[in-house]
């Protein structure tokens, strides 16, 4: 069964967002999403210092059978990207919530997180998709 950590915020498009102690927001894709995609073969990340806008495309994650856009959960500036994914995209499958993070945003407005789903709501949305 896929995991849905309770402290994270989710988008219906399967990204998660975690607010760090320094106020930055880390972004990745959910356990459910990596499972649906299958073996991840490539991740395209935004450039550091680039601006991203909430719910707009910020990258791409690619498996053998699908390529999905990654949407930014909040607007802001990209302050870090997970370089390791370039050489070892399989980390996304192995550790979607920890080592497999995608990028970090310095958000312009943390209130944007309020429109995201809770773990319970996201889990429900995944179950709906399965029917």
């Amino acid at each position: 069964m896929a995991e849905f950590p309770g402290e994270l915020h989710y988008l219906e498009s399967h990204e998660w967002a975690r607010v760090e102690e320094d106020g930055s927001v880390t972004v990745g894709i959910s356990d459910h999403a990596q499972d649906e995609l299958g073996d991840v073969v490539f991740v395209e990340l935004p450039e550091i210092d680039s601006e991203v806008i909430a719910k707009q495309e910020a990258g791409v994650v690619e498996s053998v059978k699908a390529a999905s856009d990654i949407y930014a959960p909040v607007s802001g500036t990209v302050i870090a990207i997970n370089d390791k994914l370039e050489e070892e995209p399989e980390i996304v499958n192995d550790s979607p919530y920890d080592d497999g993070w995608f990028f970090k945003i310095s958000p312009t407005d943390l209130d944007e997180l309020k429109s995201l789903l809770s773990a319970a709501e996201y889990k429900e949305s995944c179950e709906d998709d399965a029917h």
Binding site: V41, E62, S63, V64, K65, A66, A67, D69
Partner: peptide, 12 residues
């Protein structure tokens, strides 16, 4: 690299 192609990525 088929994920880039029309039969998977369609409009994108």
């Amino acid at each position: 690299l088929q994920a880039r192609e029309q039969h998977i990525r369609r409009a994108k």
